[in-house]
C-alpha cells in the first residue's frame, strides 16, 4: 500500500470527467480530497490517493490519458523561507502542525508532507510567506 499526493489541472474539455469516481471504482483507491474547484472553463483537484502502488501508477496514466495534467511532485501550498520572519503567528492556525516552530532555534519550519492545504496560513501570515499555486 502506498499514498501519494496528486495535483490535477483540468483543461476546459475535461471538466466534466468524473475523475474521483474512476479512481475509486476502476483503481480501488482511497481518496482524500484536500482542495477542489471546477468551473466550466477549467479546474483543479488536490488529492491524496491510497492503494496498491501498481494501481496508483495505472491511475496516474489514466488521468493523463484523459487529457488532465498531473503534478506528482508539488504541494499546492508553498512556504517561502526568505519571506518568513519566524514570528510564529501561523502556528496556532495550522491544524496539522505542518508549520511548526523549532523550539531550540525558534525558527519556523514547514513539513509539506502533512499539509492538508486548508489554506489558513495564507490569511494568517502577515508577510505573505505562504502562497497557493491555485
Amino acid at each position: 500500500m502506498a499514498t501519494k499526493r496528486l495535483l490535477l489541472n483540468f483543461p476546459k474539455d475535461a471538466v466534466s470527467t468524473p475523475m474521483v469516481y474512476h479512481l475509486v471504482k476502476d483503481y480501488d483507491l482511497n481518496i482524500n480530497i484536500y482542495r477542489a474547484k471546477i468551473t466550466e472553463e477549467k479546474g483543479y483537484l488536490v488529492l491524496e490517493v491510497g492503494g496498491l502502488d501498481e494501481k496508483i501508477q495505472q491511475a496516474i496514466k489514466f488521468i493523463r490519458d484523459s487529457n488532465i495534467e498531473v503534478n506528482e511532485k508539488d504541494n499546492g501550498i508553498h512556504w517561502d523561507e526568505d519571506k518568513c520572519v519566524h514570528c510564529g503567528n501561523c502556528i496556532p492556525h495550522c491544524p496539522t502542525k505542518s508549520l511548526y516552530l523549532d523550539r531550540q532555534t525558534m525558527k519556523t519550519c514547514f513539513d509539506e508532507s502533512i499539509c492538508i492545504e486548508c489554506s489558513s496560513c495564507l490569511s494568517n501570515c502577515p508577510y505573505k510567506a505562504c502562497t497557493s499555486v491555485f
Binding site: V85, N89, I91, T105, M106
Partner: peptide, 8 residues
C-alpha cells in the same frame, strides 16, 4: 500560543 515578535 502564537507570536508576532520574531525571537530568531
Amino acid at each position: 500560543v502564537g507570536s508576532l515578535s520574531s525571537y530568531s
